[in-house]
Simulated scan of single mutants.
Amino acid sequence: MLPPLKPIPIKERLSVIFIERGEIDVVDGAFVVVDCGGERVRQVLTHVPVGGVACIMLEPGTRVSHRAAALAARVGTLLVWVGEAGVRVYSSGQPGGARSDRLLYQAKLALDDDLRLKVVRKMYAMRFGEEPPQRRSVEQLRGIEGARVRKTYQLLAQKFGVTWKGRDYDPESWDASDLPNRCLSAATACLYGVTEAAVLAAGYAPAVGFIHTGKPLSFVYDIADLYKFETVVPVAFKVAAAKPAMADRAVRHACRDVFRQTRLLERIIPDIEEVLAAGDISPPAPHPEAVRPALPNPESMGDAGHRA
């Protein structure tokens, strides 16, 4: 009998891969993509080291078996069903799950206006490398952030020689956007995928945000913004300047490389902890009358949010 699978920590994994036009299954215990190859008689199997990948994006044309989805969940790999070029998320399979202690800690910080402001100020400081102005509300900090973001887009467009008319895209109509916006959409989709995988692995809730609210991935957007202009936005403008025939594919390859170069997966979970620690409160202790697990979870190699 094989020993139970143990999730690998996010920091030791590959970042993200995309799969399109294939059937995903488990063959001889391995996660594979089955390509029937049109008129070819023999199937082509592509093995995917699922336990060593943080996030797998499934594009239109993919089919996933029950065994494959179960294996991905056991090893803590996030499956995300996306639209063309990854610009629209339809659904995701949660590989871990919010731990109650960390979820309550996150929610307490988000619900208290003073604590939330401390966390937002920390996010601002980490993102821009300087302390934000004093005596500013979250709404005022968002306004300052928005102005800096628009200016950064303009500067990067000038640097790479790209015509920039502003951030404008329609997820319902991929081809209606200009090339720079399509590249930015594809690049941010990669970043959001690996960030969501890290948020879940750390045991937090993607929907409980501090700057962004009202979306299923609000906290993912908060954390991803810490790295966006260091990683994927320059990549998107660089690819747009080159005008490749398959821009979305070129963007994915470039994002994969920049994630590795910046050691992004090693940084996300520690940065989440640092951001939330700005609230200067401790995670709540269990209630005295709470019932402890009858069978404690076994020791795991994975992160705190991974299911043992």
Rank of each mutant, 00 (worst) to 15 (best):
L2H: 12
P3M: 12
P4D: 14
L5W: 07
L14N: 07
I19R: 13
I19D: 00
F31G: 05
V33R: 15
D35R: 05
D35W: 01
R42K: 14
V44H: 14
T46F: 07
H47F: 11
V48D: 03
L71E: 02
T77D: 07
V82Q: 02
D101C: 04
L103Y: 13
A107W: 07
K108V: 08
L109W: 06
A110N: 04
D114W: 00
L115W: 01
V120D: 03
F128A: 04
E131F: 08
V138N: 09
E139N: 04
I144K: 06
R148N: 09
V149L: 08
R150V: 04
Y153P: 01
Q158F: 00
D170W: 02
E172Y: 13
S173L: 10
A176I: 08
L179K: 03
C183D: 05
S185D: 02
S185T: 02
Y192A: 02
E196V: 01
A201P: 10
A201I: 07
A205G: 00
F210N: 06
H212C: 09
G214M: 07
S218Q: 08
D225V: 03
L226F: 08
T231K: 06
A236N: 03
K238D: 14
V239W: 05
K243T: 13
V251W: 11
A254C: 05
C255S: 11
C255P: 05
Q261I: 03
Q261K: 09
D271L: 04
V275D: 04
A277S: 15
A278F: 05
A278T: 05
G279F: 03
G279I: 06
A285M: 10
E289K: 14
